[in-house]
Design a protein around this nucleic acid. Structure first.
Lengths: 390, 390
DNA sequence: CTAAATAACGAAAACGGTTTCGTCAAATGT
DNA sequence: ACATTTGACGAAACCGTTTTCGTTATTTAG
């Protein structure tokens, strides 16, 4: 039966036959140089030939080997993402969808995603240099932009293409006028302004804000959104209702408590991130406050676990998958020299209705009284643990 | 001052001077062929020369360009991870540390990590074929192993090296005797047996189990651990206390409720994952049961957000970073043809003490009564929503 | 002491592309 | 009609490696 001596059984060898540029050239009776030029849009090959080549390439399923291209051109059709392993990212709300988005988009364009990790900004530099020197990647996506981001500065000085997830920010109140930077970001300003207005519509007049670590540009953007919303709502901006530089749930709880300890406490608090908003749950359960009634809160990120809290966290969700797709597409376009009509692309966040906000059940005064009474009634380790503000 | 005409200002060009093999060869007055052979351990180059070359390479910081190697050798010194975008992974408990571990280890060995994504197993095949055909990667890491894992089957048939995070499993009760598969896994069996014994030590005798979707091999492993633990504890294994194929928090809540509805309900329940254990929180708050007293639970994964629940979830943590490091190291070793002393590496999980387990405050009978009373007292939408078991 | 084997290296051909030239016909200018 | 430009292509160099194949000295065997 089996007369074919050459092993016809055994593992399938799908890796078998890639078609090379020479084969393609032979089948068209042209030189491989011409094929290459045709495919890369050189001007010294006729339209007819270009069409023939393109057609044949499609038919034979020819895909140039990017390694081979890289060695001559220095470009590898690959983009890089270095994940900052040293950075605090307690609840992983970041990565999966983002990565899926990036890799989906890159692979659609025939590119590749290479990921590395670094443990410090020092380390980042080495990692980047190595990858670039080795021509592993042609550009980088930078997530979580810092106020003076050394990563962006480095890449810019080295003239390595990059796109930012987030925006640049110079000093306390100025967006950097770096017309070269390509950004994609979510409109945090808008989301936080809306959040304020939503609280106002519920009937709140004392609305607090708990901000993220000010090293991140988004911390300033969100804070500005809050300020803007307060102005638009015609509410007084009271510095005593604003806390900054909060990163963890634990500190979020401290911040919440500080706000409730003020003379005229906020009946609604807006948190810069879902994670720090968790602190409000801690405080609420400690001091017997009902979220969504006694105290209203809303946050930002739209993390999945926010919905399993009870009550579910009202938040603004960012579409990480889309962010990844857009960023990778912007980066590849930039590397390929496409001119963008706009260097900055801003997408809206999506409101996620939860159960943590509603009309105030208590006035600011009543809330303060209830809180203080609960503090005293409580064995209140928490209070002692927390100590003085600032 | 500055008399150097050549642009000394402007962007630093760190990408400037890679040293090539030719330069290295010239500086030693040998041919580049010899250098290559020396570095790759060929036998037809003398020990003295090998040493000289190695020394000079180190001094000049020579690193071969993997693209150039790839084109000749067909190997790119890169490993692949394809993330399954279609797969349910509600709470992202997976990725970040794992990726950091993998990329750290790969880059230490001078390799690269390439990540792609797919939306189906169909898609997976295409993605893999493309990456291999294009020589983008030399092997894959496969996380979340399925009972009949089409990914592993595919890679094996194509003779593409792979390592598994998890173990193979054939039928309901048999580990596949696939001596070729290289695995790294956490000892789920041990963890679940321990969890049972811990509950027994607390004084529980009715201990339930809620299992993960049986498509995953870990579901069977963890279930076996539970069974083994029960036997070792000398407790009766009651099928009515075992639920399987639970994936989400919502279904976890259903399962919990089913167990509490049985005639002789468990006073302790062990959940296969942190996520489904969240369901117990839902049920507990709905029916006014105190976790850690009325009902004890423990879970598995050690997700960060488990610790922000109140009470904090008792769980077993798996070190994702280490898993990533080991897997990438195993894979690279395998690709390079190293013989392993053991194809299977099993690491222990780390117990995370939370507040959800303790001595039973109620007997099984009392718990059942309390639960039923609460159900009736309750408007209990939950009950109606849930419907009949199976 | 000569013939054969071996050790250690260099020259050059791959690998799969891109890019620089040179060439030759056709089109254009005068 | 002749000189010149242009258009379209092939030949060959090149990118940075690996790998094959000679080619020499130097050992070893007979």
């Amino acid at each position: 039966m089996e007369e074919n001596q050459v092993r016809s059984d055994g593992p399938i060898r799908l890796l078998s036959r890639r078609v090379t540029i020479s084969q393609l050239a032979d089948s068209l009776s042209v030189s491989k140089g011409t094929v290459s030029k045709a495919l890369n849009g050189y001007s010294d090959v006729s339209g007819r030939t270009k069409a023939r080549v393109a057609e044949a390439a499609r038919k034979m399923g020819y895909r140039p080997l990017s390694h081979a291209q890289a060695i001559r051109t220095g470009r590898s059709r690959s983009i890089g993402l270095v994940i900052q392993a040293d950075e605090y990212d307690g609840y992983n709300l970041f990565l999966r969808d983002f990565l899926a988005g990036i890799s989906q988009s890159t692979s659609e364009m025939g590119w590749t995603l290479t990921v590395a990790s670094s443990n410090s900004y020092q380390d980042f530099q080495q990692v980047v240099c190595r990858m670039v020197e080795q021509r592993k990647v042609d550009g980088f996506i930078l997530p979580r932009i810092l106020v003076h981001d050394p990563r962006y500065a480095l890449l810019k000085r080295m003239e390595i293409p990059s796109v930012l997830f987030g925006r640049l920010w110079e000093s306390e109140d100025d967006l950097i006028a770096d017309s070269e930077a390509i950004c994609y970001d979510i409109d945090g300003e808008l989301a936080f302004a809306e959040a304020v207005l939503r609280m106002q519509k519920h009937g709140h007049t004392r609305i607090g804000f708990v901000g993220a670590p000010s090293e991140y540009t988004y911390a300033h953007i969100r804070r500005n959104g809050y300020i803007f919303g307060m102005e638009k709502a015609g509410l007084e901006i009271d510095d005593k209702l604003i806390v900054s530089d909060i990163r963890t749930r634990k500190n979020g709880a401290q911040a919440t408590q500080w706000l409730l300890e003020t003379e005229e406490p906020p009946t609604a608090i807006i948190f810069a991130t879902d994670e720090i908003a968790m602190g409000a749950y801690t405080v609420a359960s400690q001091f017997n406050l009902s979220l969504g009634h006694d105290l209203s809160i809303s946050a930002y990120d739209g993390a999945a676990w926010g919905r399993i809290m009870s009550p579910a966290l009202t938040s603004y969700q960012v579409d990480m998958g889309k962010a990844g797709r857009r960023l990778s597409s912007l980066l590849i376009g930039h590397i390929e020299g496409k001119k963008l009509d706009d260097q900055e692309e801003i997408a809206p966040a999506k409101f996620i209705r939860g159960g943590t906000d509603g009309p105030p059940a208590l006035s600011s005064y009543e809330l303060g009284r209830k809180f203080r009474r609960s503090v005293n009634g409580n064995g209140s380790q928490l209070v002692r643990q927390i100590g003085e503000r600032q």
